[in-house]
Design a binder for these strands. Structure first.
Length: 502
DNA sequence: ATTGCCTGCCC
DNA sequence: ATTCTGC
DNA sequence: GCAGAATGGGCAGGCAAT
């Protein structure tokens, strides 16, 4: 896109980048660049919707050698024929970043409003067939009656229920009248659709991953007793020697694989942990309670050691719950999910369905800010992400261990050490050492406390480690960079994780 | 053939 | 994934 | 509580440059 804008406006890519750094939005950038240019060259031909559509269509169809250049030309052509305002939204459309405050929720409401049907009916239909094109068509042609007829279709992915993060085990088990605790596995959400001999596998984002997991398909075909059904579960990778869960990174080598699939599944065997059933022999089970669904689940599968129901335990006793939780961690799993036995299956929701996730809180780390990236969108003009480093005790050098982009506030707060994006940017400005495009390097002065879920081995960062899900906690004004945590501590924490310690 | 960057999708 | 914010 | 918009590590694969 940078190149396309440069070409359309007739300036260098560097100059486009310069503007982009300030605006944080290539749409805004191209708008202002085009309007400047237009003051000089007037009278371009008018762009039509048909032309825009044709070019976008053509872009989507190009592939193979030299395709990038052709795509670039097609975008540049549109941009150079567009008015400033048109260019802004063409750029944003291509980048899929409209930034107009409209996403699924508003489209849903708009469909309801346009065809005078209820939001709930639109949402209900969309949950089962997540395609607003289809849903809007039915809403227009058949109204509520049509929407209510939507059924879960085997082979078509639907919106799945999610879990909410809970502050602690005690809060979680006292949230509901009757709860079950289940192991939380660090793997890949897997929806198994079965229709006779036919099996489909989908991820939580509706992707069809059937071809990448022939081993899973085979297990499903063999172990599911029900003729037609949809099962919900989590697939993890196992170490082929020890049989213990492998880090998510290893499982992920299998997820998008198109080649050498057979070889990969020999290397990383899988284990399927089923925790729900959503459809059985023609009936949608989402309106049953979890307790009822779980009984159906037990009847639907013949369990083996690699294809089974997630390990669960019914209790309201905190001591017992804690024991079970520790057991999960010791087994190398991620934590537990506490489930409301009386909750229905609520697609797309984190709260209404009564699933609470509990994971151990890791000791935080004090690291040094050594760089940053200029933010985009609502973070324009501020450092939107911080580059972190850990101290190497022998040399005193600061070795990069990842980036961080969440936890910083937009609004001021009184909390000690808390910082808004603006304040952080102001603090860092005097420390700039060099800039390269959107990247900035800072003198290593500021120490911040960061939280995370896991320390990973990293192939990208020089320290050899990176943080999974890092977030900002506070600035350590009381610490200089030489007092920041060092690599030894990071290594020690890495080794203690996942039941390896204790 | 190898490397390096980008995209899309898993968490 | 996590987090913050406006509604 | 939801919705929307910021942002993370890391993987396979696609393509361009070398």
């Amino acid at each position: 896109m940078l190149k396309a804008i440069a070409k359309a406006v007739g300036i260098s890519v560097e100059d486009v980048v310069k503007d982009y750094k300030k605006s944080g939005d290539l749409g805004t950038t191209v708008e202002s660049l085009v309007s400047k240019k237009r003051q000089r060259t007037l009278g371009a031909e008018q762009l039509t919707v048909g032309k825009v559509f044709a070019n976008l269509q053509a872009i989507s169809e190009h592939s193979g050698s030299g395709s990038q250049d052709r795509k670039l030309d097609l975008i540049a052509e549109l941009l150079s024929q567009a008015t400033a305002l048109e260019a802004k939204y063409i750029a944003r459309t291509v980048l899929e970043q409209l930034r107009i405050g409209v996403a699924e929720g508003l489209v849903r409401d708009a469909v309801a409003s346009a065809y005078n049907v209820s939001v709930d009916d639109v949402e209900g239909a969309w949950n089962l067939l997540p395609d607003f094109g289809e849903v809007a068509k039915v809403a227009k042609e058949d109204g509520e009656k049509g929407l209510k007829k939507f059924k879960l279709r085997l082979g078509t992915p639907f919106i799945v229920q999610l879990a909410e993060k809970s502050p602690g085990l005690k809060e979680a088990i006292t949230s509901f009248k009757k709860v079950i605790l289940e192991y939380k596995y660090d793997g890949m959400r897997t929806l198994i659709h079965k229709k006779g001999e036919k099996i489909w596998l989908f991820t939580r984002n509706l992707e069809n991953i059937t071809v990448a997991f022939p081993d899973l398909v085979q297990m499903a075909r063999k172990q599911i007793k029900a003729e037609d059904c949809v099962l919900d579960g989590e697939t993890i990778g196992l170490d082929k020697k020890t049989g213990k869960p492998v880090p998510f990174q290893q499982l992920s080598t299998r997820i998008k694989r198109k080649y050498d699939i057979e070889k990969a599944f020999g290397e990383i065997p899988i284990e399927v942990n089923l925790f729900d059933i959503v459809y059985l022999d023609g009936k949608n089970l989402m309106d049953l309670t979890f307790e009822e669904r779980r009984k159906y689940l037990e009847k639907a599968v013949k369990e083996t050691d690699k294809f089974h129901i997630a390990k669960g335990f019914v209790t309201s006793d905190l001591k017992e719950a804690e024991t079970f939780y520790k057991e999960a961690l010791k087994a190398g799993e991620e934590g537990v999910i506490v489930k409301d036995m009386e909750a229905l299956y609520v697609p797309g929701r984190r709260v209404a369905g009564g699933w609470l996730k509990i994971k151990p809180v890791m000791e935080s780390l004090d690291v040094v800010i050594v760089g940053g990236t200029w933010g985009t969108g609502k973070r324009a003009g501020t450092i939107g992400s911080l580059h972190l480093a850990i101290r190497e005790p022998e040399t005193g050098r600061f070795l990069e261990c990842g980036m961080l982009g969440t936890g910083l506030k937009e609004k001021k707060s009184e909390q000690a050490g808390s910082a808004t994006l603006k304040e952080m940017t102001k603090l860092l400005k005097p420390l700039v050492e060099s800039e390269d495009g959107s990247l900035v390097r800072f003198k290593p002065k500021i120490v911040i406390e960061v939280a995370y879920e896991e320390i990973q081995k990293s192939p990208t960062y020089v320290s050899g480690y990176a943080l999974r899900f890092p977030r900002f906690i506070r600035i350590r004004f009381d610490k200089g960079p030489d007092e920041a945590d060092d690599l030894n501590r990071m290594e020690k924490l890495y080794k203690q994780q996942k039941g390896r310690g204790k």
